[in-house]
Each structure stands twice: as structure tokens, then as C-alpha cells.
Design a protein around this nucleic acid. Sequence first.
DNA 1: CTATGTGCAAATTATTTGCGAATTG
DNA 2: CAATTCGCAAATAATTTGCACATAG
Lengths: 158, 158
Amino acid sequence: MTRQRKVILEVLRGMASHPGAEEIYEVVRRELPRISLGTVYRNLEILSELGKIQKLELGGTLKRFDWNTRKHYHIRCINCDRVDDAPMNFMEHVENSLDDTTGYRITGHRLEFLGLCPDCLEKAIDRRTLSPHPVAEPSDSAKSPDGDAPMSRKASNF
Amino acid sequence: MTRQRKVILEVLRGMASHPGAEEIYEVVRRELPRISLGTVYRNLEILSELGKIQKLELGGTLKRFDWNTRKHYHIRCINCDRVDDAPMNFMEHVENSLDDTTGYRITGHRLEFLGLCPDCLEKAIDRRTLSPHPVAEPSDSAKSPDGDAPMSRKASNF
DNA sequence: CTATGTGCAAATTATTTGCGAATTG
DNA sequence: CAATTCGCAAATAATTTGCACATAG
């Protein structure tokens, strides 16, 4: 347990979000200005092997880390890539729903919800930025409480 | 619809697995030796936007592609990274299980099962390669039908 | 024709690794 | 001290992109 390892762990525990290595690096740096990015990567890996943190492999391009080591799900914004915990119970038994013809020995599962986070949702409603096809400015009062969901092309992948 | 686009689509449709871009490239190459990897990437992206194929963002390091555009789940081997379709019905309603305090507008979800594929499972049983701690060779007949699952350290992340 | 797509090579992004020096126990 | 870890820089891996040329419609 080196100083840098301890600081990395504390920093992650102090973060509400689910940061990637770079983001953690930037914060740790404020305390240990001489630390290297490689050290951050190495320690995040080690800490997750020790079970002190959890490595998340969600969609998108980067690996994220979570101080919460309990099994739980996540929800990711398809527009800004923000990630939050999904407020939903872990389904202990989904794995039993699998047809046993797979031949696999199942060891776990991962569930990720996709959607627009509150911030991006608001921007989408205000500016129609994410509408499937550009919309001629409607009267600004038209804040349809639950109208046509703005879905990006990307979202239609699912 | 260029020749290369057509060939890429046909090749993917002819593949049983869920290949990444490189793997598709290698096969397409046999028909179009002068095609470039960049073209493969570009066309896979376009084809998925057109809804002709599906882009998969599973765990692991690479993006995979699936000719099957219907919503379905996958199962991935934690040892060799092989991916198969998960023989299980799509859960149309899981998204409703989400506590509505999220503030997100949900547009989809993704479920991935993890485990040992038949091949890796067999090797693990034969050679105990993946046991948590090395095991003294037991009698070879001990094919426990559902005994102690060989779990790698990685698997315990979930 | 002309908009779109291609091949090639260089650029990006995220992550990993070799190595000699520093630190921990 | 001896094993582990660090900082740094270079190496990978997967994917993206700029640009001059080629092709489809």
C-alpha cells in the first residue's frame, strides 16, 4: 500500500461519478503532482483485483471505475456519456432465464440502461437538437410534458 | 451502395460469430484484396446507421458487429472473448423497473452475460487452469455436473 | 458530371509495458 | 536489503480522419 495507491482509492471514494482513469489522474495529481498516468492505471487495476473497487466495462470507449463494489446496474447518457447508478434492484436470477443449451457456465451478467440524462434531455427539449429530423421552431411554450421522445440515430441501435 | 459496401454486408451476413472490424476485413480481403481497413470501418458504421446491421458495444476492447438487427442479448466468454447470442427472450419491460427518480429518458438497455464458453470450460475442467487456487489433480472422472464453478479473478468483478 | 466513397497514411484515444530509479516493509 | 512499485517514455490496440484520386448513379 503505497502513498499513491492510498490517494487513488480515497479520491475515487470521494467522487460521485464513475470516472475513467484520466479523470482520476487529474484529481489525484492535485495531491501528488509527480504521479504518472501509468501508475494510476496500474493501481486501479490492482485495486479492482483486490476487490476494493470495481472496474466497469460499459459501452463507450473508456473503462470506468466505481468505489461501490456491490453488484448493481448503470445508466448512461447516449449524448454526453454521463454514467449514474441505475436505481433498480439487482436481478439475482436472470441468469436462470438462460436456455441451458448454451454450453456456457455462466458467471455473471451486466445490464446497462441507455438514455438521455436530465441535462441533455432539457437541452433537447429546448433546442430540439436531437430530433430525428429538424423541426421548424414551434412556439417556445410547447414543452410537451411527454411528447415525441427525441431520439438520436444512435439510440435506434437499440 | 458500392461494391465494397455490398461485400462487407454479405461477408458479415455469412459469419456465424460476432466479429470485430479487423476480422471482417480479413475475410472481405479475400474477395477485394485492395480494400482498406478504413473503408471497412466506415462502411460498418454506415451500415449500422442504415439499420442493415447492428453495432455491438459489449465489454472487452473491440466493437463487434451483428447482421441480426433484432434486439437480443449476448453471452461472452471471460476467457477467450468468444461471443454468442444469448438464448433468452428480450425483456421488453425491464426499463419500467427503473425507479423514475433518475430524471433520464430511457431509450434502451443492454444485457450481456458472462461465463466460460464450452471450449474454455472443457479446458478448465481438464487442466484446472482457471481454478481460483491450483488444485491437486483429482480423478479424471470427477466431471462434477454442477460443482464448484471455476471462476477467474476477473469474473469476481461481477 | 458531381456527390459520394476509396485507399493510404498519419493522427487520435485509451491503455499497457520496459526499465532504471525510488520506496516500502 | 529485497521485493514491490514508481515515473517516464515508448509501444500497442482499436479506431478515426485528411486528402488526392476513383467510382456510382
